[in-house]
Write a protein that binds this DNA or RNA. Sequence first.
DNA 1: CGACATCCATTCCAAGAGGTTATAGAAGCT
DNA 2: AGCTTCTATAACCTCTTGGAATGGATGTCG
Lengths: 298, 298
Amino acid sequence: MDVDSRLLRSFLAVAEEGSLVRAAERVFVSQPALTKQIRQLENRLGVRLFTRSRTGMALTDAGRELARRAPEVLAAWDDALRAARAAGRRTARVLRVGFVASAANEATPGIVAEFARRRPGWRAELRQAAWTNPSAGLADGEVDAALLRLPFPGQAALRVEVLFSEERWVALPSTHRLSGRAEIAFRELWDEPFVAAPPETGAWRDHWLAADEREGRSVRVGAVTEQPDDWLSAIASGYGIALAPESAARFYARPGVVYRPVTGVSPSRVAVAWAPADDHNPVVRDFVRCCLDLAGTP
Amino acid sequence: MDVDSRLLRSFLAVAEEGSLVRAAERVFVSQPALTKQIRQLENRLGVRLFTRSRTGMALTDAGRELARRAPEVLAAWDDALRAARAAGRRTARVLRVGFVASAANEATPGIVAEFARRRPGWRAELRQAAWTNPSAGLADGEVDAALLRLPFPGQAALRVEVLFSEERWVALPSTHRLSGRAEIAFRELWDEPFVAAPPETGAWRDHWLAADEREGRSVRVGAVTEQPDDWLSAIASGYGIALAPESAARFYARPGVVYRPVTGVSPSRVAVAWAPADDHNPVVRDFVRCCLDLAGTP
DNA sequence: CGACATCCATTCCAAGAGGTTATAGAAGCT
DNA sequence: AGCTTCTATAACCTCTTGGAATGGATGTCG
């Protein structure tokens, strides 16, 4: 009765999409591969899970039953694996800290050092997350704590402590007509194309487009990027401009890109976040303490 | 984070046995295969699950955590698959009925026919179970109902209705010194070697050895078999004798084996059993009804 | 003290699972 | 009729996985 959990995930994707083609691209495999996976699952169960037709794949009774139960099974599964990993980290005395690129700043090395001082024997392991993962792996248990920019999707389900605020500047190609200005009013940028984060990052994307500080005007998106490198390239190549924390001017300097202060946009806030399950985890608490203590003293 | 459930089962086996070699034979794979499976699981989790030594495999903290959670995850998994299968059978209008070989009798075809009459469109599917599976697949959800001999292991967790009683006879090799007798007292057989069911069948095995009707004397086991064919062969070859229901004389006649009435042993009881979860399942209830109605009328 | 037994790890090889691309086939839509 | 949009199939390739044999380390026993 052994089934790879990937089969169940594929099954759920097909069940939810109602189509092999759509599910295939969601799960990042080809459509024939999915066809085979589903058939394999059906054979192993000895039960038809879908009725096929030109209009797509519709669940049978058996399929509906499986689709009803599969999510919690997969969740329990992931939980167990996560718990094992966490236990391993505990004995190895490693605290995993995720961060999104833009949250890196001058205080970070100090925080890590201070943590090592307060927790002898422990080590903070930093892992950078792509922008498609706006909670930096906290939401799915990949890390124990995260340094983030607010707001981010899933924020409500996590504990968050704001560390400091930082002005938002704008990153321009050096060839841009405004690149010579010492300071720019945000309203001058309303009609510029922007380099944006992927749509699935929701509120986070909107924040960096300052979507709600444009007095209702819509945003022109000139490019979508997932990583700092691509982001810088896109700006340098003139696909668009972008808001960025002031510190990006130091951390993400690159020929062809200039950073200028912007007036008329709210500042950005950097925070440390952790899972509610770790509220009483002394190691996580210590790390958060370090962050708060060092936030103001770069 | 996809993991084949087989990996988890292997992991549990190693965790429980504390040894790759022993776990390997329990899971029916070679030891190198298990070595690889465990390492694969560890790599995928990024955590050591065992500390290796010549004395065996000892769980790490992470391993202990996983071992603690894995069983219920696997159970939930199996439950979900079982539920899907059951749903499929429901729409296909198939009732699966397990039976152990010795419970087959003259009434069985009548029961199936009567069930088909009462539930038009439905079909009872009979599946014979090996003696190593004394609940005939009911305990693990393979079947919806089962025809069994009492007592059997796991009986307490199931619903049971006795259908009828039947005398126990003895099956002897035709060359046996007592084979000419028309009737035999059980005490005359106390010192004979018996052909027995595998040890894991517990109370069921003891019942057919009449272990508690020997006034304390221990049983000599001449052979262990798992299937009727082997059982008959073992008797015919003189490895031992065995108690059997009277109807076996008709259902399992074979040259070289004779059946004789025995006095001094209690009769055997045939029952229909089902899972408590199906208490209100009208189809199962109907089937049970058919069994009860036809039990007395071969 | 040497032969042996008992672990787990490693190597090599064969078989199979599972993926991809290309294509077929069915059926609605314009 | 031609086009689109589904799923199914075929052909091919790669990588995984399991088995047998073997190695290495370490107790154990005569």
